[in-house]
Design a protein around this nucleic acid. Structure first.
Lengths: 250, 250
DNA sequence: TGGTTCGTATGATCCAGATCAATTCCCATC
DNA sequence: GATGGGAATTGATCTGGATCATACGAACCA
């Protein structure tokens, strides 16, 4: 998802007039039925979710929600990419991930948002009132186990990031990060792999725990060596093999 | 837990003869009823768990389970401390945490262990056959939501570690780590705070992504400055205030 | 009891990445 | 097409932690 020409999210999703129409067919047409959180659900459960979901759009650079705010909603990303980050006590910003289609944002049992989310491009999401979602969880144990499992998946990804961060060298760090990002953006058809969104270097820096300068120099080297190339709105992977080698060069 | 004089785990827990006796009163006497995973459960659920739990002990330095092995059991720590770690592709060892009383080890839905666990001192655990645990989860949705919540708690801790790792300076990194460890070992009565287990410097190094040498020098400085002191079997916190200052000095 | 090993401790050197400092590029907007 | 601001880029320098090397003590055990 979020790859190739991005279908421009329909603005009218926000308007009450089209709300019902959107609602009733929300899951039926969604390409995510086979990806991420939704793919773990039965048709029946998806119908229940669709019942209480609302389609919303978010322009590039806008903030979806902020850390610490009361958690009124949870979201499933349908299209586009967001950066997720936490503000640390010392003021540092820690980017904890990049959300893509299929990802569930926020944990329904948490009463406050534990991170902030900004759109990196135009984003299209399913929104659920947290209370509605909780109600469903209570009625549908299957949904609850799906939640447990994807939370554990997130934990696995967090541990992956931990491994990345304790890497000492900048190049393999970068290479591993890019590989993971390319892979998570991969669609069966698209070859070679591409990241269809321009991820600011500052965000990569705050994800990998390095400075922008180092991120920039490291990426510049990869570009010079024709391993990746920066396109107008994203990144292309030119040489998987060499990127893998660098990733393992530690 | 795991603080003060550690009640030496009863060996006979392993013997079939005492097994039943142990089983029937497992939760009734356990101090953990008000801590960690178990504290989230009703009396009824604890009874169900006790039904299928088995008390096991593990000597210091022994391995409880290994990453990649088929997951036959899950555990709840009752006493003692373990190090949890993953082996990375490049051979590096990443310590992902230190488990203490009340912590659930392994995710019941995972068919393979996603990390290894070694005892840092004598450890006393409740063991559950994974299939039994899964059965309970299926029958008891409350248990399932407790699982989701503690998995999310672990995710929160992982993100804390992420923030730690992207710290550049060794001193605040160390200070923050120690503070968290002291706090997680704190018991209402014990004052000043103490970590009742000797955590090898190599483990700290692999947790914080630094070398043993740096860990050693950084800790040596803290000891010289009378902020902490190394006891025979653990660490004592002498000056919380200054340790906090260092932690925030970034 | 001597020997091996593992954890801890400490010194000397080196270097990758942080830091400081401009400059250029890219757009969005006027 | 002028203008302004954020992001990207590039250079010069500095430094903290990695690396290498060695030594010491305690536990283990043959």
């Amino acid at each position: 998802m979020a790859s190739g020409p991005v279908a421009s999210p329909r603005k009218e999703a926000d308007s009450p007039r089209n709300f019902f129409a959107e609602k009733s067919r929300a899951c039926g047409y969604c390409e995510l039925r086979s990806k991420g959180f939704c793919s773990r659900l039965s048709e029946n459960q998806k119908a229940l979710l669709a019942e209480v979901s609302r389609l919303v759009t978010l322009e590039s650079h806008k903030t979806l929600f902020r850390q610490g705010e009361e958690a009124d909603n949870v979201y499933v990303v349908r299209n586009g990419m967001l950066r997720l980050y936490q503000r640390m006590l010392d003021g540092r910003r820690q980017v904890i991930g990049f959300a893509k289609a299929g990802d569930l944002l926020l944990f329904p049992f948490s009463e406050r948002n534990d991170y902030s989310a900004d759109a990196l491009d135009s984003v299209y999401l399913c929104q659920f009132r947290r209370q509605d979602f909780l109600g469903l969880l209570q009625r549908e144990p299957e949904l609850l186990s799906a939640l447990a499992v994807i939370t554990h998946d997130e934990l696995t990804r967090a541990r992956y990031q931990i491994a990345l961060l304790s890497q000492r060298k900048a190049e393999p760090k970068m290479a591993q990060f890019l590989l993971a990002l390319f892979e998570s953006c991969a669609r069966p058809d698209s070859n070679p792999m591409a990241i269809p969104v321009r991820v600011p270097q500052a965000d990569i820096a705050d994800y990998l725990g390095m400075t922008v300068e180092t991120v920039n120099r490291t990426m510049a080297r990869l570009v010079r060596d024709a391993i990746i190339s920066v396109a107008k709105h994203g990144l292309d992977l030119l040489d998987v093999k060499r990127l893998r080698e660098i990733a393992e060069s530690y």
